[in-house]
């Protein structure tokens, strides 16, 4: 009985300490994680997001294809990597699946005013002032019509993040080399290989949704991913950061089971040895 009392005191002290240095300290240091807003409330919804894909393709060829490629439809960018780096310090992405990854209203507003949509005044793409709202609708319709269906988390991550971020452990290197990125963003953006361990899932989701909300002043733009794409990206990042999770969870049960049995045997032996002592 006395020993159980001592054990109880130990457990209480350890639990208080654990609560203090883990959940409590982290809640004080990081505050509450804000909820992501996947509807992009501040983005105007009055720009049409539907139209004629054929017209959209024409508009795309004349207005976008000088910088952007679209491999799904056989369009190559009008600029090689070196030229685009000299003009923008960042490689403009291929837009094959952008229609599936981004929220459509965000995409429409982004074409019209990239700086405001991304909440990043230094964003490299110029506003497409020459396009009317109706034109934008055609382009969005075109972009949506060519996308691949059922993109995997990896594909979305590479398309959405890959022009600036590398994922070294997955052998994915950023489209843009490090030096121009440093000029464009002020520093080389972090590698995403184990970001899933450095940040938790809720944080990543909120951060990707609106970086400025979590890290004011950061040079990462808001991407306008749909809820589904965000979740796929975050799940992917979490997975690659911790590839042995399933193995760990299963093995843990076996090891603990083994040790519980061991505790049983040792207890029986202790009883036997101590029978005549007291």
């Amino acid at each position: 009985m006395k020993e159980l009392k001592i054990l109880l005191i130990l457990i209480v002290l350890v639990l208080i300490g654990y609560w203090g240095i883990e959940p409590y300290a982290h809640s004080v240091m990081h505050g509450e994680v804000k909820q992501p807003d996947h509807t992009y409330k501040d983005v105007p919804k009055n720009i049409p997001t539907t139209g004629d894909p054929v017209k959209g393709k024409e508009l795309f060829t004349t207005n976008c294809a000088s910088c952007h490629g679209l491999k799904n439809d056989g369009v190559n960018p009008g600029m090689d990597i070196q030229t685009s780096i000299t003009s923008f310090k960042v490689v403009p992405p291929d837009l094959s699946n952008i229609g599936a990854i981004l929220d459509e209203h965000f995409l429409a507003y982004f074409i019209k005013n990239p700086q405001d949509a991304t909440k990043n005044p230094k964003f490299a793409m110029p506003p497409m002032a020459q396009l009317s709202d109706e034109d934008i609708g055609h382009v969005v319709a075109y972009l949506k019509s060519v996308t691949k269906k059922d993109l995997t988390g990896k594909e979305i991550t590479v398309e959405a993040c890959g022009r600036c971020h590398s994922i070294k452990y997955q052998k994915v290197l950023s489209d843009t080399p490090k030096e121009p990125l440093k000029e464009y963003l002020g520093k080389v953006p972090p590698d995403l290989s184990v970001i899933g361990k450095a940040k938790n899932v809720e944080y990543l989701e909120t951060f990707i949704n609106n970086p400025q909300n979590t890290l004011p002043g950061t040079s990462m733009p808001r991407l306008g991913l749909t809820k589904e794409s965000t979740e796929k990206v975050v799940t992917y990042l979490d997975q690659i950061a911790d590839p042995h999770r399933d193995q760990r969870n299963t093995l843990g049960i076996w090891v603990i089971g083994y040790l519980l049995f061991m505790a049983g045997i040792t207890f029986a032996w202790k009883k036997k040895i101590w029978k005549n002592i007291h």
Binding site: V255, I256, L259, A263, K270, K272, I273, W274
Partner: peptide, 18 residues
């Protein structure tokens, strides 16, 4: 005698540890 008890404490500790 002492170690008989010790082994039991050790196994309980290892359950917690792992």
């Amino acid at each position: 005698v002492f170690m008989a008890k010790e082994f039991f404490v050790m196994s309980v500790f290892l359950v917690f540890f792992f």
